Amino acid sequence: MSVSSVSNSPVLDELTIKDKIKDEPKSGELGQKAFLKLMITQMENQDPLSPQENTEFIAQLAQFSSVEALDSMNNKFDNLTENFVANQALQASSLVGRSVAVSSEIAQLDAGDIVAASVDVPASTNSVTVKIYAESGELLDQADLGAQGAGEMVARWNGEKLEVNGTVLEWNSSTEGGHPPGIYRMEFEASIDGEPTQLNAALSANVNSVTVGKDGVLTLNLAGIGPVKMSEVKQFN
């Protein structure tokens, strides 16, 4: 199982972007000092015969206080969101080097490792078939896994032996000694009500790295598969 260095992960780079790029002061904004200066200037230049009434003055102060409070609240909310994304990203980075299961027909077989498949069997069937293809599309092996009940069927393949629900099957691989490490495609098919039906399978894949998008979406970069959103992971192994 290959492990990528967390220190080189784009996660940490993404998390420091906002520290590197600070917002430029916006000259068009009316700050607290400018507002007070404008208010004092207004009072100094008001008509002595028709001065500003206290109620109008208090209303202006109240309006400014409301705007200032909302601005402060927005800043705190932004900081809270940034901290949440940062914590989530750091937790996700701990997945680097581990295995997860995602809906896919593609899997990478590493030396001394296995490919695990969680297959959804929608109804009891007398026959489930697995076909294993090379990355080039060539059919390498196929086997009848026998009758299966409705529910989850778990298969494990190490390039040579195939285990289904804890039982190692007696089958002959097309390659003596098993298939070498590489990218493979696995398809599962069942006979449901007499009709051949493609089954949904979640295959295992190693997490090479984790990235965080500008929208805060976490993406796992999986060996042999590529980028997959965190929300699409079916199982953490």
Results as ranks from 00 to 15, higher is better:
residue 156 R to F: 04
residue 52 Q to V: 02
residue 102 V to Q: 05
residue 183 I to R: 01
residue 58 I to C: 01
residue 102 V to D: 04
residue 41 T to C: 08
residue 213 G to F: 04
residue 232 E to Y: 00
residue 199 L to S: 02
residue 164 V to G: 03
residue 147 A to R: 07
residue 149 G to E: 10
residue 231 S to E: 15
residue 195 E to Q: 14
residue 51 P to Q: 06
residue 193 D to W: 00
residue 58 I to T: 14
residue 176 E to H: 12
residue 99 S to P: 00
residue 41 T to S: 14
residue 36 L to A: 11
residue 210 V to G: 03
residue 178 G to R: 05
residue 48 P to V: 10
residue 66 S to C: 00
residue 83 N to F: 02
residue 174 S to Q: 13
residue 105 E to I: 04
residue 75 N to A: 15
residue 222 L to Q: 03
residue 121 V to L: 08
residue 211 T to F: 02
residue 184 Y to T: 07
residue 196 P to M: 06
residue 193 D to V: 00
residue 119 V to A: 07
residue 32 Q to D: 07
residue 57 F to D: 06
residue 45 N to M: 05
residue 11 V to F: 07
residue 97 G to M: 11
residue 118 S to H: 09
residue 172 N to I: 11
residue 149 G to T: 09
residue 97 G to D: 12
residue 163 E to N: 10
residue 190 A to R: 05
residue 170 E to F: 02
residue 218 L to R: 03
residue 68 E to I: 06
residue 189 E to G: 01
residue 28 G to D: 15
residue 175 T to F: 05
residue 88 Q to F: 03
residue 191 S to F: 04
residue 216 G to M: 05
residue 221 N to S: 06
residue 44 E to N: 09
residue 68 E to A: 12
residue 61 L to Q: 11
residue 57 F to T: 05
residue 232 E to A: 11
residue 5 S to D: 12
residue 131 K to P: 03
residue 70 L to S: 13
residue 1 M to R: 07
residue 191 S to A: 12
residue 137 G to W: 00
residue 142 Q to K: 10
residue 207 V to L: 13
residue 48 P to L: 13
residue 206 N to G: 07
residue 25 P to A: 14
residue 76 K to M: 07
residue 220 L to V: 13
residue 186 M to S: 02
residue 52 Q to C: 00
residue 210 V to S: 04
residue 219 T to V: 15
residue 155 A to M: 12
residue 45 N to H: 12
residue 15 L to I: 14
residue 207 V to S: 09
residue 187 E to T: 06
residue 39 M to H: 01
residue 55 T to P: 00
residue 52 Q to E: 11
residue 70 L to E: 15
residue 144 D to Q: 01
residue 213 G to T: 05
residue 152 E to V: 14
residue 190 A to N: 00
residue 231 S to R: 13
residue 39 M to C: 01
